[in-house]
């Protein structure tokens, strides 16, 4: 049984559906990316899961227990950081951990948590949170999300304000916790970072789930593109198209999708005595796949 089950959840304001039969699961130890454009319903979905917002129909269960606006005892084992860190300006980082640890029987070890989330340095110490930078607040927000030794953590834009090293460290932390069995539901606009981290993706647009799959499956149809420059691109283009490949001219470079490898392209061009001046392999990325999916979804919607 999945740790988190979201089944046919709909949230309606009048005739407007901000969540439309949203359905997906999160398994223990899995890192799931919830992605979509601005206003797609990511934060709304996370708010419904964390009992902050009522929903019109459907049901949400965590560890077999229901989560609704009125009843959410199951949230004891869910940590969250929704949109921005919940910081009291007059408390220090340690004060925050003490405060949020009060309502759990088995909180995380403070020293260990502070070390893992890097809020144990001199920058933190006895300083009050009102003097923290955005990145420091974000790290504290993540520590707060982990204070209850949660079975699942919900993070909305956790990389906001973090420098590249901190983003890398956060990725390592999330991965190590997932290896210990903690599930994550993460939304982020930094899709390249998310791509390196998640096991599964849930793609949402206009309040509807348009794809739920393992991350690898997102790229299975268009895993790789090739950027090609020849001595005569105008001649090369129809030859490549004749192979059944998709070819686009992008600022003097031919972007090719379809060959099984670069050797296919080299063989074909050699047969036509065309000289290759440049050939690069471009790995597919989540951003591109998301854009393609959204574009397909829009077309189908019309």
């Amino acid at each position: 049984m999945a740790l988190l089950e979201v089944k046919n959840v709909t949230k309606q304001y009048g005739h407007k559906k901000v969540m439309d039969s949203v359905t997906f699961n999160v398994e223990a130890g899995h890192i799931v990316g919830l992605i979509g454009p601005n206003g797609a319903g990511k934060s709304t979905t996370m708010r419904a899961i964390t009992g902050l917002m009522s929903y019109t129909s459907g049901n949400i269960q965590f560890d077999g227990q229901p989560i609704t606006f009125e009843q959410h005892t199951a949230l004891d084992k869910v940590g969250n950081l929704i949109e921005y860190p919940a910081i009291y300006p007059n408390l220090t980082a340690l004060d925050h951990l003490k405060l949020y640890a009060m309502d759990t029987p088995s909180p995380a070890n403070f020293d260990d948590l502070m070390r893992r989330t890097q809020i144990d340095g001199e920058n933190f110490g006895k300083r009050k949170a009102k003097k923290f930078s955005l990145g420091m607040k974000q790290r504290l927000g993540i520590a707060i999300a982990l204070i209850r030794n949660p079975k699942m953590v919900i993070l909305d834009e956790p990389m906001n304000g973090l420098d590249p090293q901190s983003v890398h460290d956060l990725r390592e932390l999330i991965r190590s916790l997932a290896d210990e069995g903690v599930a994550f539901l993460i939304s982020s606009h930094l899709l390249d970072e998310l791509q390196k981290l998640v096991d599964d993706v849930v793609i949402i647009n206009d309040g509807k789930i348009i794809k739920t799959s393992p991350i690898a499956a997102v790229f299975e149809h268009d895993q790789v593109h090739y950027q090609l420059v020849t001595n005569d691109n105008i001649l090369a283009m129809p030859i490549l198209v004749d192979q059944g490949w998709q070819v686009e001219d992008e600022n003097g470079q031919l972007l090719i999708t379809g060959p099984t490898g670069p050797q296919d392209i080299i063989t074909v061009l050699n047969q036509h005595n065309l000289t290759i001046e440049g050939l690069n392999t471009v790995q597919a990325n989540l951003e591109q796949s998301l854009l393609e999916l959204l574009s397909t979804n829009d077309t189908e919607g019309k």
């Binding site: 964390t50 009992g51 969250n80 929704i82 949109e83 919940a86 949020y100």
Partner: peptide
């Protein structure tokens, strides 16, 4: 912004 963790508990 502390209302969210305050409310998203048991």
């Amino acid at each position: 912004g502390t209302i969210r963790p305050l409310l998203s508990r048991r």
